Every structure is written in structure tokens, then in C-alpha cells.
Amino acid sequence: MTVTRAARVAAAALGLLLLTAGCGGSGAASGPEADADLTAAADTSTCLSDAHQVSDFPAGYPTEFPLPDVTVVYHVEDRGSEGVVATGVTKAAFPDVLSALNAAKSAGFKVTEGETEDHDAEANWTGNGYTGRWAIKESTTCPGETVIQLLSKKI
């Protein structure tokens, strides 16, 4: 199936709306609506010590997406045609998580565009029959931990 430019733009816009982790860069969703979407996705203040691994993932989640070692995905939300939003936390430091997610191309997931700031980053990606967006940020409540949110949609 060929993905049209309009579909890619729509997926990117949806990802930006759902997963922007509070960055102030241009094009970033902001305001009460964007904050409400993030809050609805999951509580990003969960620490690794309190996180419980999700065992059942919806069909729209790319189980082969390479998250950093010792990442606990503690919340998954199937939003139907909008895709799946997964939230996890890892003990890996922010720069290591950023490197790992950017290196996902070795598993067939290519970053198509993104933005990195001092304490958070986000990027659109595509690969292995999926499209989506990831967002990471240093945990504000759990020193040394990084929160990961992954939007994925089967294409």
C-alpha cells in the first residue's frame, strides 16, 4: 500500500497533537487541548519502581520497536483509527534514550523529522508497516529516569 503525502502529514500532525512533551519549539502543540491529550494518554510522573509492565498490546502497536533496555511500558491506549499510544519509563539517561531511539533505523524504523531540546525530544518515524511519533523527556519526579511515549499506527 502506498502512503500518500497527505496521510503522512496527517499522521505527523496527529502525533504532534498527542505526544508533544511540552517543548516550546515552533509547530509544537500547546495549550490546554494538547495538555489534556497528554494527560489522557498516561500519567508521566510514574517512576520505574512503581511501573508495572503491560502484557497485552493492541494490534496497532509495533512490538518489535526497539525501546531501550529496562523500559517498562506501563500504559497502552488503543485510540482506534488514531493509533496506539504507549507510555513507558526507563532508568536510562535522557541522552542514551535519545541515541537508542534514533538508532531504531537498524531495526527498520526510520526517523523522518524531529526536534531535540535540553530535557526533551520528539520525532516522527516510519517503518515495518507502521508510522508514528515518539516523545521523550527527563522525568521531573524520578531522578535519572526518562519517560517515553510512542504513538504508532499500522499503515
Rank of each mutant, 00 (worst) to 15 (best):
S30V: 01
S26L: 15
T44W: 00
T46H: 01
L48R: 05
A36L: 11
A42Q: 03
A36C: 05
A28Y: 03
C23G: 12
D50M: 03
G25V: 14
E33H: 05
A40M: 09
A51E: 02
A21W: 00
A41R: 02
C47A: 12
A28H: 15
D35K: 13
D37I: 06
T46M: 11
S49H: 06
A28S: 09
P32R: 09
C47Q: 03
L17I: 08
C23A: 13
L17D: 10
D37S: 08
G22D: 10
A28M: 07
G22V: 09
G25A: 14
G27W: 05
A28R: 12
T44N: 05
T44A: 08
C23Q: 10
A34D: 07
A28V: 03
D37R: 13
A41G: 04
L48K: 05
C23W: 00
L17H: 07
A36G: 11
A51T: 02
G27L: 09
L48I: 07
G22R: 07
G27A: 11
C47I: 07
S30M: 02
D50F: 02
L19I: 12
G25T: 12
G31V: 04
A41D: 14
S26M: 11
S49T: 15
G27K: 07
L48C: 02
D37W: 10
L38Y: 00
A29P: 10
D37V: 10
G24A: 15
A40R: 14
A29L: 09
C47K: 04
S30N: 08
S45R: 13
A28W: 02
L38E: 04
G27F: 05
S30H: 12
E33G: 09
T39V: 12
D35F: 05
C47T: 11
L18N: 01
A40D: 13
G27Y: 09
D43E: 08
S26G: 14
G31S: 08
A41P: 01
L19V: 14
L17T: 10
D37K: 08
A29Y: 07
G22Y: 05
A34I: 10
S30W: 00
A42S: 13
A36P: 02
S26I: 11
A41H: 06
A41E: 05
A36R: 15
A21Y: 00
C47G: 12
T20E: 13
T44Y: 00
G25L: 09
A28K: 03
D50W: 08
C47V: 07
D43Q: 03
S26R: 13
T46I: 15
A36E: 13
G31T: 06
C23V: 03
A21K: 00
S49W: 02
A40F: 10
A40G: 06
A34L: 04
C47F: 08
D35H: 05
A51S: 07
L38S: 04
G27H: 11
S30T: 09
P32G: 08
D50A: 15
T46G: 01
P32S: 15
S45H: 14
L48V: 08
L19A: 15
T46Q: 11
L18P: 00
